[in-house]
Design a protein around this nucleic acid. Structure first.
Lengths: 152, 152
DNA sequence: GTAATCTCCGTACATGGGTACGGAGTCAAG
DNA sequence: CTTGACTCCGTACCCATGTACGGAGATTAC
């Protein structure tokens, strides 16, 4: 049941590349695994959830440093420390949810407008957003991060 | 009221650097503004909301291409196109909300556990996440994007 | 009118998050 | 025991998202 596996198998089951796993390990997101046989890393089935969590958290706007912070909550430390960190991160998550909710509402309105057939063009979408301008990053990260390409 | 302003003033009121605005313009996220005086870009007060929206959307896990897609919904096109795109993006946003909600629930549970004083260490936090493994990106972006550094 | 400040533009550099390379060691099947 | 697939490691490279530079022209404040 506990089927131990090599890095390649883990990469496959977690849906990432081998190099990504090595990268996460270097970055401290994954613990150094045991390597009994010959230096080959040996993982347990359960290691895949961590990688999937990382990937999902990224799509939700957390950077790897944020994610390391979340993962560190699942470890051995005094409850008081855990409690305070968790509460802080909880707050950030709630703000993210609120931000997405306002995008969602705007999109719903837009869809409904379009279904009522008229008002072609110039639907006022996302203004709801520019209101709410509180900070959303976790660890007081110095610079917020973006990513774009062609406009098209 | 309509106080027109230069790029520097816009950057200040939107809380970004001048270079960032030029970069967004190059990337097609901001329209080429009028430049009557001497080639200096001239912006309206309202241009700041667009920039704030971009910044907020980034913290919610959208990349600049995603964001360009959202912003394009607020323009002149046939309702049917807008409708379909909006619905697709709505779906993505709802999935993001669900993902954050499961992180939120796990954090709440963790906070409550710590408040009940005991179970020091090894609180099972985020497992709730690894379940839900649907795709969360918007535009069928080829590669999902991450970011890490020191573990610390 | 002149000095300080701002803007222009193109290009170069920086950082986060991977991804690829290449030579050497290991393992498993035939 | 050989062959092919897999792993090791370090380093180099890549893309997205800015950020900085620098010389030339415009604007504004005195």
């Amino acid at each position: 049941m506990k089927s131990r596996m090599t890095i390649g198998k883990l990469a496959e089951t977690a849906g990432v590349g081998v190099e990504t796993i090595r990268f996460y390990q270097r970055s401290g997101l994954l613990p150094e695994p045991e390597r009994p046989m010959s230096g080959y890393r040996e993982y347990a089935e359960g290691d895949a959830w961590r990688i999937r969590f990382i990937k999902r958290a990224q799509t939700l706007g957390f950077n790897l440093e944020d994610i390391a912070g979340l993962l560190r909550l699942d470890g051995p430390q005094t409850c008081s420390v855990t409690h305070d960190l968790a509460q802080e991160k909880l707050h950030v998550v709630e703000q993210k949810i609120a931000g997405l909710a306002s995008i969602r509402d705007a999109l719903q309105q837009l869809v409904r407008q379009c279904e009522r057939k008229h008002q072609r063009g110039t639907c006022p979408i996302i203004q709801s957003l520019a209101h709410n301008n509180n900070e959303l990053r976790l660890n007081s990260t110095p610079a917020p991060i973006l990513s774009a390409k062609k406009s098209m």
